[in-house]
Design a protein around this nucleic acid. Structure first.
Lengths: 199, 199
DNA sequence: ACATTTGCTTAACGGTGTTAAATTATTTAA
DNA sequence: TTAAATAATTTAACACCGTTAAGCAAATGT
């Protein structure tokens, strides 16, 4: 019967509506504002019908995560295809990754669990700047022959922090990588940046 | 009156009890399990008295964040003092940072907003492995003269990912750094790692 | 002894995710 | 066409959440 098809198509449509509504709410008011009742409001149903399409709220987040990975993969593939040299391909893919993170900020957040609460943290909590100060002093000392500007020191600081924080996030979020690999990444990263400081 | 002092001391004590109880709950069942009523249970009071010590739940998280930064600063300082060469000091401080993140995992999480939900994500969602595959293939090609093992490719992959993901996290969580700095960090990081691939 | 303050609890409000029951609408069968 | 069966949707409810207001009981000051 064709009517079965039509109904299935409608069902698939509301499934997508639920995902779209979720993303819309998150884009407007952030992840913490996402609730089943608000989703229901947007799709003009009541909350319980959502459970006919997703077994719970977590399943919605998971589906958005999958959506994110699909878009990311597509973007990275197309970036790769624009080059032939492996080095260029790598750069293009990572830049695509970077752009995806900000173009689809909300998806990236649910994919990798970055929350955005603490933007003005340093203003209300001076202690949060101590690590920055400690490290920057040493970086400046290390660069002192060149009399670096504060911005140049910042560049090095953020590179360091990115590597370490990135490694930590990844090791916390994913299944733990082998210790040897992690330690090697850590050491080579640190010494690599230190070496690069006086380039 | 000395009794005033005693009472103030008791008040300070329950303040600390609240923070300790919070951390205990989080260590046992994760951040998402932390609730005012559960804190009250642990300190053997009812929920509303917590508001005599903290204006709301967010304030408790903020205080734990501060606690984290204090410990981190202490650890980094003492690591620095163990060395005289700036390069050694840097390495020691970042290793201290690293160790802090795992020794005080819960504090690090509330400080930088890393959530830990998706440990087995790759098992239940194959799409999550596509970016890894894409990049690894190119890295392997780039290293091909050396016939690298899968572990060696992983090292490079995770270094890349750490840098990019770390930069993204930082740019999302903190007030936005100037675009020029960010772009320079990105480019130098990427080309640095690419260069290092055939060391 | 009475009044006042303090410490704490109970009760409540509006919100959350989720489930079960009741209701309405649609399709099927006689 | 009408009755029975099935599907679609809502209402009601449960147990929890953060938070606030009202109430009570004990300690304190006068």
């Amino acid at each position: 019967m064709a009517s079965k098809d039509r109904i299935l198509r409608l069902k698939e449509e509301t499934r997508i509506n639920i995902l779209d509504a979720s993303l819309q709410i998150v884009k407007e008011d952030g992840w913490q504002a996402l609730s089943m009742r608000k989703i229901a409001d947007v799709i003009e149903y009541t909350a319980p019908i959502i459970y006919e399409y997703f077994s719970n709220k977590e399943a919605i987040l998971l589906e958005l995560t999958r959506k994110g990975f699909l878009i990311l993969a597509r973007d990275m593939k197309s970036a790769k295809e624009k080059h032939r040299l492996p080095a260029k391909q790598l750069e293009a893919m990572w830049l695509a990754y970077w752009h995806f993170a900000f173009a689809e900020k909300e998806l990236y957040q649910v994919m990798f669990g970055v929350d955005v609460n603490c933007c003005e943290l340093c203003e209300i909590m001076p202690e949060a700047e101590v690590p920055y100060t400690l490290i920057s002093e040493v970086i400046e000392e290390l660069m002192s022959p060149k009399k670096p500007t504060e911005d140049e020191v910042s560049v090095k600081y953020y590179t360091f922090w990115s590597v370490i924080h990135g490694l930590i996030s990844i090791n916390m979020v994913r299944r733990p990588t082998s210790d040897e690999i992690t330690q090697e990444v850590l050491k080579t990263a640190i010494s690599g940046i230190i070496r690069s400081i006086n380039d």
